[in-house]
Design a protein around this nucleic acid. Structure first.
Lengths: 112, 112
DNA sequence: ACGTTAATTAACGAGAATGTTAAACAAAGG
DNA sequence: CCTTTGTTTAACATTCTCGTTAATTAACGT
């Protein structure tokens, strides 16, 4: 199957190490060594994870001297959330019947 | 790495066929054959996708005679969204500095 | 009982993901 | 220059993932 953008994003998020890296980056930019520190896996492994995150657009990277700093870019998370929002009516208790109806109508209109 | 619940959910969502199946189920319950119809892949392949979705809690299944009906359960999407919400401040333009500050404070307090 | 319909399991293969260690590259700094 | 520090690339092993076809299970209808 075609590996669209959403697939790349979700696949990137499917790994606990990568999610932990994103959590760390939420506190501020960090170098590869800093990101690797909490984990018991090798540096090359972290390096690959960062490449996956970068490819998904979840981080950007900059170089200063021999250090490569990673920076969180949460925009893809917004896209993922936007996709999930289509299903909000299926879990959100506060959704009234009218809300659901209006959503259904709207999604019908969006189809053509 | 440990395959926690969130990983299972994101991994399930990483496949376009599975997301299309969820989209179909949002319109109503369906049998395996009905779900397979739009795709050019074999029935066993669909069957496996359904097992992945079921394992992630994204669908439940019931049997009536020889038909197996799948039903959307979006609760895992709520969990996934909840996780992503921690990063909302990194993409949501409408987030004020105060909001961000309060979120930061709160997440600090949550830290035992 | 027997055949039909619906779906799953079994057995297999190609390719992707994740990890390792060893070697290479890049920049800083004596 | 040559070494140290930070990071990536290469080469490889192992384990998933996703697909296939063939066989099997389950329930219905005659």
């Amino acid at each position: 199957m075609t590996d669209d953008r959403l697939s790349t994003i979700f696949a990137a998020l499917a790994d606990p190490t990568r999610r932990a890296i994103l959590a760390r980056l939420a506190e501020g930019d960090a170098t590869v060594n800093q990101l690797a520190e909490p984990f018991s896996i090798s540096l090359p492994a972290i390096s690959r994870h960062l490449k996956v995150l970068e490819h998904a657009g979840l981080i950007t990277r900059s170089r200063t001297a021999q250090w490569r700093s990673s920076s969180l870019q949460a925009e893809p998370l917004r896209e993922a959330t936007a996709w999930m929002d289509r299903y909000r009516q299926f879990w959100d208790e506060s959704f009234s019947r009218l809300d659901v109806h209006l959503r259904r109508i709207q999604s019908e209109e969006e189809k053509p």
